[in-house]
Amino acid sequence: METKSKIRILIAKPGLDGHDKGAKVVALALRDAGMEVIYSGLHQTLDQIIQSAVQESVDVIGLSIMSGAHLPICQKLMAMMREKGLAHAKLTVGGVIPHQDIPKLKEIGVAAVFPGGTSFEDIINGINRLFE
């Protein structure tokens, strides 16, 4: 059988913030880059995100966070990913992320950070690079 793998990515908006333009345009860009994008919709709990990621057997969870709560959310989600057998999947985060928080996010275990203003090309390359 011919193997035909694709990068599968869950684009999710954790928490209560509803600014979803960024998540939506990135989902469209990743689709056009040949990835399979699962879109969770708004107002997701971390449990919902984890379960969706498990069932969809994704390679990447891409969070979009504008509320400023990226550090606690990523910390918690990383722990849940380890606990729920998603250690193989990568966590990426985009949205309103101040520069000084990027090293902190990396330390937590976030594989890639795409602050607002990152070009589609850089996001696509950044995700592809995680699987080279």
Binding site: G15, L16, A69, P72
Partner: peptide, 11 residues
């Protein structure tokens, strides 16, 4: 509420 965690008074 559990969903309010980390968001109280933030914005």
């Amino acid at each position: 509420h559990p969903l309010a965690e980390g968001e109280v008074g933030r914005v």
